[in-house]
């Protein structure tokens, strides 16, 4: 069976900067794959390109065997790709429920139906379960991250892209967020996880890809990547 997601020689440019150079890897259905590497290595660029938020300069992106390279973000979301962005990017001037309803924008415009679904979604996230009417900007960092993940799930994705869910969170909160990710994995959600803290990512992932200066330098099952000496070098240099 073809993998759920497949990248073939994908390159991305921001003006004069080549952020991603000929990156190829794939994500199997039902698995968690992590994308790790130092800051600025191109991890976020990769998932943003998959979600259709940044254009690819060359290469192909296949989802369920279908070429989605040229499709707009809204089509990709409708097909089943969802992303929780780096830095959480919740809509701070709207309530938690509103944020969740916007996550289902491509599925429905019916507010009462969406509100019901949003409340059901909230119930799955103890961190924010009783915060429905609060302005999202007033949530703590961990709560905002939980909201970002919940919002991404509102579109009922087949593939969930999680970009730096631990960013700026205290260790205790990172544990909680990773519990959520583990639960999602146990329910069979396919996840591509971007993480700069490799050790966290390894706890939940089956496969790992390492990016360095916009290039894929290492990929394979977590057990192999973890012990590869090239991993430490990717972070701390020689």
């Amino acid at each position: 069976m073809a993998p759920l997601l497949q990248l073939e020689n994908v390159s991305v440019k921001y003006g004069a900067i080549e952020a991603l150079r000929e990156v190829s890897f794939s994500v199997e259905e039902g698995s968690i794959t992590c994308l790790i590497g130092a800051n600025g290595a191109g991890k976020s660029t990769t998932v943003n390109a998959i979600a259709g938020l940044v254009p690819t300069a060359s290469g192909r992106i296949l989802f369920q065997g279908e070429d989605i390279t040229k499709l707009p973000a809204s089509r990709r979301i409708a097909m089943g790709i969802s992303i929780a962005l780096e830095g959480r990017k919740i809509f701070g001037d709207q309530t938690v429920i509103d944020n969740l309803m916007l996550g289902a924008y491509t599925r429905s415009k019916n507010l009462s139906k969406l509100r019901r679904e949003a409340e059901e979604m909230l119930a799955r996230f103890p961190l924010i379960a009783d915060r429905g009417q609060q302005l999202a900007g007033t949530l703590s960092g961990g709560q905002q991250q939980a909201l970002a993940i919940a919002r991404a799930l509102m579109s009922r994705p087949k593939l969930l892209l999680l970009d730096e869910p631990s960013l700026g969170l205290a260790p205790i909160l990172i544990q909680e967020i990773y519990q959520i990710i583990q639960d999602l994995a146990d329910q069979g959600t396919t996840i591509l996880l971007v993480e700069q803290f490799a050790a966290y990512a390894f706890m939940v992932s089956q496969n790992a890809c390492v990016l360095e200066h916009g290039q894929l330098t290492l990929a394979g099952p977590v057990a192999e990547v973890r012990d590869d000496p090239r991993l430490a070098r990717a972070y701390l240099g020689k």
């Binding site: 544990q175 803290f197 490799a198 966290y200 706890m203």
Partner: peptide, 18 residues
């Protein structure tokens, strides 16, 4: 800094995660 466990942990998330 290179030898410091805390610095390493900050970068790779070692101790807290394991």
């Amino acid at each position: 800094a290179r030898a410091d466990e805390q610095v390493k942990e900050v970068y790779i998330g070692g101790a807290a995660a394991t």
